[in-house]
Design a protein around this nucleic acid. Structure first.
Length: 235
DNA sequence: CCATTAAACACCC
DNA sequence: GGGTGTTTAATGG
């Protein structure tokens, strides 16, 4: 993982200004925080973090997509969830001072923002709004995982893909999702939904047929988010 | 049986 | 060439 000095500060700063917690901080506090953070560029397929490593930073995705996965000793890989631009992760392991519980891998060329532990802990000690944000984030993540477990057990592939797409518009997890366009390949949507690429393609076509999304060369545009959230496949 | 998937295929920007 | 759509053979519930 290549470490960059805060040279491309502009985009990192942009991301902080757009983030829910960054907006709530006084400008001088945010400026100090930004000065303590670094940015890292990870090529597609590269590791952002590995399971078992000590957690030294809280991490935000500036650009790109990462997936969190675990693997069995036999080498089987299970994707837990993905994080798109605007999302933050690692606060749990950071707070618990435990090794990273999963692998974090870039699905494409990705840039992440890294907040050192001491900065994270200072914010927690000094800023009520930052703690409020973390509480919201943890709550949203818990709801997200419970929802995914439920979907995995109760829903078919078309519905899982629909819910997965809809979850990308969860503003607690991804405050940057302002446009209805999802910049993910069908293979990536498959990974995050837990279905194969061609099954994801089939599901997306069914959703397009139902008028909920429009398929594009690179990505999907959501036309009816509420309907996507509640989609149930005809059978 | 039926659905899913991995692999391989042909389009097409 | 990479992403998308489709077919085929194998697999498993």
């Amino acid at each position: 993982m290549r470490q960059l000095k805060t040279a491309s500060m502009k985009t990192l700063m942009e991301m902080l200004r757009l983030s829910t917690w960054g907006r709530a901080l006084p400008p001088e506090t945010l400026a100090r925080v930004a000065g303590e953070m670094t940015e890292s560029a990870v090529p597609a397929g590269g590791d952002v973090a590995r399971m078992g490593e000590p957690v030294t930073h809280w991490t935000g995705v500036i650009e790109g997509v990462v997936k969190m996965s675990v693997s069995s000793p036999q080498g089987k890989v299970s994707t837990l969830t993905g994080v798109i631009a605007g999302g933050w992760f690692g606060e749990g392991s950071l707070a618990k001072r435990e090794p990273r519980r999963y692998d974090v891998i870039a699905l494409r060329d990705t840039r992440v923002a890294l907040m050192p532990r001491h900065t994270f802990e200072r914010l927690r000690a000094e800023s009520l709004s930052f703690n409020d944000f973390l509480f919201q984030l943890l709550n949203a993540r818990l709801a997200h995982f419970i929802s995914m477990l439920e979907q995995d057990r109760l829903l078919g592939p078309d519905e899982r893909v629909a819910r997965c797409l809809a979850s990308l518009f969860n503003t607690d997890l991804y405050p940057l999702a302002l446009s209805p366009h999802v910049d993910l390949q069908q293979a990536e949507i498959g990974l995050l939904s837990g279905v194969s690429r061609q099954r994801a393609n089939q599901a997306l076509q069914a959703l397009q047929e139902a008028g909920l999304v429009r398929l594009e060369r690179r990505g999907v545009t959501v036309l009816d988010l509420p309907a996507l959230r509640g989609y149930s496949a005809p059978h």
